[in-house]
């Protein structure tokens, strides 16, 4: 082995290279790697956040859809109910009207009956008197028996 000043040259060279690496290489690379690490971490966090937000939005939209469905079915139910009510109202109105018409018809009929009965009474009385006149001929004095005839008439 031939040990000589090459040793010193090598040692110095080595030291210079270390210093150059330390000054111009190491910090740049370390910085870039640290920054990239940060970027990746940020990106992952953002992705996570985005995912969560998407989930929330989905939840919200589901809620809205459910709400809408609920409202729609409420409206339909209300309309149904209102329709039923209207039909019911119309029915009862018709019934009242029918009753009213029936009652007035009844009243008219009753009136008619009463009038006809009145008329009949008078006619029967007249007929009875005429019959009695025929039977009794002259013996009957109209004026003398009027009172009796009226009584008969009233009984009819």
């Amino acid at each position: 082995m031939d040990i000589n000043a090459t040793l010193i040259g090598q040692g110095l060279t080595f030291f210079v290279f270390i210093l150059v690496t330390m000054k111009f290489v190491w910090p740049n690379i370390q910085k870039a790697m640290a920054e990239r690490e940060q970027k990746i971490a940020d990106g992952l966090a953002a992705a996570e956040k985005g995912k969560q937000e998407l989930e929330q939005a989905e939840e919200r939209s589901q809620e809205l859809v459910n709400d809408g469905k609920q409202k729609a079915s409420d409206i339909i139910a209300q309309a149904q109910k209102r329709g039923d009510e209207m039909i019911e109202e119309a029915k009862s109105e018709a019934r009242t009207e029918a009753d009213r018409v029936k009652a007035s018809a009844q009243a008219e009929i009753d009136q008619e009956i009463a009038t006809a009965r009145e008329k009949l009474k008078t006619e029967v009385a007249a007929l009875a008197i005429a019959g009695a006149e025929q039977i009794l001929m002259r013996e009957v004095d109209k004026s003398a028996h009027n009172e009796v005839l009226d009584k008969v008439c009233a009984k009819l």
Partner: peptide
């Protein structure tokens, strides 16, 4: 005395190394 060959090749290789490192470090981006 000096071993010129040893010094020469270690310098050449060392400079090659530094040049390569610098190339990586200069373009270093995040």
């Amino acid at each position: 005395s000096l071993h010129v060959d040893t010094l020469f090749f270690s310098w050449v290789l060392g400079l090659l190394m530094i040049w390569f490192f610098r190339m990586g470090a200069n373009r270093a981006t995040a």
